[in-house]
Design a protein around this nucleic acid. Structure first.
Lengths: 189, 189
DNA sequence: CCGACATTGTACCGATCGGTACAATGAGTC
DNA sequence: GACTCATTGTACCGATCGGTACAATGTCGG
């Protein structure tokens, strides 16, 4: 009987955090081992493909979370603005209001991109496309919807960088608030 | 007589490119040596502090370029909008219309931030502050100017990430065009 | 208890990491 | 030519890198 490690989700979450903090090159197997409490024996048992497979699994795991909590609401919400609101809530929650950085965005920047270009492009591409469609459904003409969507996703990525650089979480909150307004949502209480 | 290597600028530019492509951890001395044509003997002669000093010098070099080509125009242009226009031109030129990534932004994301937090914070902080002041001079109330400035710098960073992720330079051009409009500049010919 | 298989710890591999030591060379001044 | 000092190539250091091998465990169903 195929048995999935009962907490593979948790495991991938921990590994993700190591990649997030140190980047692909900087995340050594030693660091991953310390963070997860697993030795190399276990790590290579779960990820025979080694570090690259770990990273690939982590990206897929994050991708799945966004699919469920961001893309699906954008696509399926009867009221498109409600879906967009859920996207912003989920985004704020996922990035812990700016404490966390976007692993996939970080991978996009350096040469590790070469290994994961497909996954990276798909993640951001779907984010932009689903948001653009929701914006169209909420009344924006297609071209404008695309621009707004691209701008919103880029604004989130940039705000993560800037918040981290300035060591000021408010940078991220302000960026999300501006996007709320720009995308047609009422100011938050 | 103190003699500065005649092309220290060029040297720092090459080293910067290696850090940009591979990140701080990923930029090995071997890669740096190959890119510059210098052996370890030479590298440690010019940078006795090793890799960390190289990175610090590279950041300072970039910072200086932005000081001269971005911050000074923002601060000193008689017509603030002209200064903002120069900022956008210089930015487009520096990042090669999205082909290049922001090394300082990349360093802000992973743990190498711990080493360079001061330089990183200063670079982005000055960018935002100088832009905000130019916006005030061009007629925006202070609070609005700060928000616009922060948004513009974040939009540029985010667009670099997104352009790289999507492997589509137009993402960056579109972001710059939107910022032109948002900051009060006429649409470009 | 037994066999099957999932999981683990440990020892080890060659390669590469950042860094050091130092002698040899280059280029300029006197 | 002799002295100075900047520059370089090479050999080497211990540590760590990602990865492999494998025997020793744990954990099941039967």
């Amino acid at each position: 009987m195929r048995r999935i490690a009962p907490d593979r989700d948790q495991l991938l979450g921990i590994v993700a955090e190591v990649f997030r903090e140190h980047g692909y090159e900087g995340a050594s197997l030693t660091l991953i081992g310390e963070a997860t409490g697993l030795g190399k024996g276990s790590l290579y048992h779960f990820f025979p493909g080694g570090k690259e497979e770990m990273a690939r699994a982590v990206i897929a795991h994050i991708d799945g979370w966004f699919e469920d909590n961001v893309f699906v609401p954008l696509r399926d919400a009867v009221e498109p603005l409600a879906g967009i609101g859920q996207m912003l809530e989920a985004t704020d929650s996922y990035f812990r209001s700016g404490r966390r950085v976007c692993l996939i965005g970080a991978f996009a920047l350096d040469e590790s991109r070469a290994l994961f270009a497909g996954q990276i492009g798909s993640y951001f591409g779907r984010w932009v496309v689903h948001l653009a469609r929701a914006l169209e459904r909420s009344g924006h003409p297609p071209g404008e919807a695309s621009e707004l969507a691209e701008e919103a996703v880029a604004a989130i990525q940039g705000a993560l960088t800037l918040a981290r650089a300035a060591n000021d979480l408010d940078v991220f909150s302000r960026a999300l608030r501006r996007q709320r307004m720009r995308l047609g949502l009422p100011a938050k209480i």
